[in-house]
């Protein structure tokens, strides 16, 4: 049963294990490097700028060749003049702000409502069975479809706008959180349990941080949906009470048959949507992913 060793193994000095270990650590160390700013600018900022310049070039060319009537296709310069006009009238920022404020406050409300719904759906099985499919279904229903109903129920006012934003964004936020929680690896849940993380401590230290990447993706999509549905609602519902937002501005210019103004409206809507994503969601998402080693390369 017992075994005795006649030639005792050479005594391994303490320092040997430490030295070999230190050597291994140095050899195995994962090299992570941040790409220098100039490279980031060259690789990520330059191509889209070139693309925009190209589009402008083709646009100008089409105008110069007089491919179609001027009232159908104004030049980039004429759109720029329309922008300068708005600036001179002093209404540019109030138009943007009217829509942006609505969009952001509606989105924040959607986050406040969607987050607990997501937690409930992810954690309570009967709730998931009952409203999980409805949430997914709502996500694929364009929330513009709610505008006629909202107008009848709530009238042409801000409530209609907020209702449409919420119907667009809440399912995305809730579904994002559900997906995020579902994707937390079971091993991490087990290791949390062995450390004694149960109940609230489990939600706070394991579930929510683990679900963050999926949740952020849901927030991002929620913003895109709220912005989109808000613009549609502004286009459809007209009332002096609502003030002039970007969607209304766009529709007004169409009524005046002012194509430069219409194009300006489209471009402004696009810029605001992209700007919120670029300035807020993308950096947040990148930071979260990089901290977890999920953003391997910037290339």
């Amino acid at each position: 049963m017992a075994s005795t060793d006649t030639t005792p193994s050479p005594v391994l000095e303490k320092t040997t294990a430490a030295d070999v270990g230190a050597g291994l650590d140095a050899l195995d160390a994962v090299v992570t490097q941040r790409t220098p700013l100039t490279t980031v600018l060259r690789q990520k900022a330059l191509p889209p700028l070139v693309a925009v310049a190209l589009v402008l070039g083709v646009w100008q060319l089409a105008f110069s060749l007089e491919l179609t009537d001027e009232y159908k296709l104004p030049s980039p310069g004429m759109v720029w003049a329309a922008l300068a006009d708005l600036w001179a009238q002093g209404t540019l920022f109030s138009i943007i702000w009217t829509s942006l404020w609505r969009g952001l406050s509606g989105f924040v409300a959607a986050v406040i409502i969607g987050t607990p719904i997501g937690l409930l759906v992810a954690q309570v099985k009967p709730v998931r069975a009952a409203i999980g499919p409805i949430l997914s279904g709502l996500q694929s229903l364009p929330s513009v479809a709610w505008v006629p109903a909202a107008v009848i129920w709530l009238g042409v006012n801000s409530s209609t706008m907020y209702a449409v934003i919420l119907l667009g964004a809440v399912p995305s936020v809730a579904n994002g959180l559900v997906a995020g929680i579902d994707q937390v690896p079971p091993l991490l849940l087990r290791s949390g349990r062995t450390m004694g993380a149960t109940g609230l401590a489990r939600a706070r230290h394991v579930l929510l941080p683990g679900a963050l990447p999926g949740y952020l993706a849901g927030l991002k999509q929620g913003w895109a949906f709220s912005w989109r549905s808000l613009m549609a609602a502004e286009l459809i519902a007209a009332s002096p009470d609502l003030g002039v937002g970007l969607g209304r501005f766009l529709e007004n210019q169409r009524e005046f048959n002012d194509m430069s103004g219409v194009l300006l409206g489209i471009i402004l809507i696009l810029i605001v949507g992209v700007a919120i994503d670029l300035l807020f969601f993308s950096p947040l998402e990148r930071r979260v992913l990089r901290n977890r080693g999920l953003l391997v390369s910037n290339r």
């Binding site: 270990g21 650590d25 195995d28 160390a29 994962v30 992570t32 901290n291 977890r292 080693g293």
Partner: peptide
């Protein structure tokens, strides 16, 4: 960060 460490670490 965890991803900056080798398997043994």
């Amino acid at each position: 960060r965890v991803h900056e460490l080798s398997g043994g670490m």
